[in-house]
Design a protein around this nucleic acid. Structure first.
Lengths: 223, 223
DNA sequence: GTCTATATCATGATAGAC
DNA sequence: GTCTATCATGATATAGAC
């Protein structure tokens, strides 16, 4: 079944990624994963300690890669426009656009990652570490600061909140299942391939509108 | 422990709601729920058929109540402003404001509901029915149509997508765990009680901005 | 150090007595 | 409707082979 030359650790990572993507974390059993990888049942415990830890490793691996891409995109932008502050749309492109591009990845990698990331934000007391880990926060802060510079007239507090809202809209929009669920009404449907292509444009337009939404006096009054 | 006069069915619903909210669906065991309710282990199977079904019942109960409130709010608005089209902000208030107000509910009801609802949108092949059930779709469509009227110049397709994005931003913003996770940086933090009060204002402002975001030519060109 | 075979323990589900 | 007993499946732990 599986190429024999790969190490057990790698086999498990690969198979787990695929099976998690297909069935979700809960319904993917340790037995199924080890069987698919042609390794012993106990190897997950040996290499990762637990099923949860295996998921952690997968998320961390993806997250690190994603954040690298994000930083590269940001650096590129900053190099191009010497000194001049970046436009909000450019910053969003580097942060969320890079994430959205993962959807096109092969091997379910992108979709699984995004779904499981979403799950980890919803389940209490679970999987927090991969998100609030130092590296990830560092990247988030870089983009946060870029937004501060790009929108000097907006209170920093508000920017942080709106960043948060943007992450939410993106996570949800991206979760494969969510997409077709809420609005399956025929009248407004369009060709699916068209929808997929337009998703990024549409979401970015929405995020930008939310980010730059005028602030009412109440919010400003409260700093 | 538990008041003896309540029926088993009610006891289970109440305890399950609380325990699901605290630990999440997976980590709440049938044994723990039945123990807390002072009923027999097998009663969940008898009354609900399965643990999943119990969750379904909980979600449906909440969802129906929520949607009733939403319809009432919408009707009230439509009665007040005879014939004149509603403002988008009013429609959002009726739909998302009503949802956000559930956060103040006692007994974890609101938070659990929102978290589990979020989960159900992220897990594949799971719990779809409560969301795409007929009643819920009917309510969603009412609000969708209200937005169509309120924004006659925006293509219907775009409104539907933006509605979708708004749901995502709201779900995420509301999920108790998500709130403190992403941005725990000290510099931008403010008093937590203040944050909680302002959440609704902030989110509504963001949603409104996203909903009314100008459309770039690319999107319009593709209808 | 790496992997395997096997044992343990918790969980959801269920059958059948009362 | 409620109970006890039991099953099937899952994750995890351990002992020991290579």
């Amino acid at each position: 079944m599986y190429p024999q030359d790969k190490k057990t650790y790698e086999k498990l990572m690969d198979c787990a990624e695929k099976i998690f993507a297909e069935k979700g974390y809960d319904k993917a059993s340790v037995r199924e994963i080890t069987a698919a990888a042609n390794v012993n049942l106990a190897s997950i415990h040996y290499h990762f300690g637990s099923k949860e830890n295996l998921l952690q490793e997968l998320l961390n691996r993806k997250l690190e890669w994603l954040n690298q891409q994000r930083l590269i995109a940001l650096k590129t932008l900053e190099n191009k426009s010497k000194n001049k502050p970046l436009k909000p749309s450019q910053i969003l492109e580097a942060f969320f656009g890079t994430l959205l591009d993962m959807l096109d990845e092969k091997n379910y990698g992108g979709e699984m990652f995004l779904r499981l990331l979403g799950r980890s934000t919803l389940e209490p007391n679970c999987l927090i570490s991969s998100i609030s880990s130092g590296k990830n926060n560092a990247v988030t802060e870089k983009f946060r600061d870029a937004l501060f510079k790009a929108l000097p007239n907006v209170p920093k507090n508000e920017i942080v909140w709106r960043f948060h809202f943007m992450v939410g809209a993106t996570s949800y929009a991206i979760s494969g299942s969510g997409l077709n669920k809420l609005f399956v009404t025929a009248e407004v449907s369009e060709d699916k391939s068209v929808s997929k292509k337009l998703l990024k444009k549409r979401l970015m337009s929405f995020l930008l509108g939310g980010l730059r939404s005028p602030m009412n006096s109440f919010l400003i009054g409260n700093k």
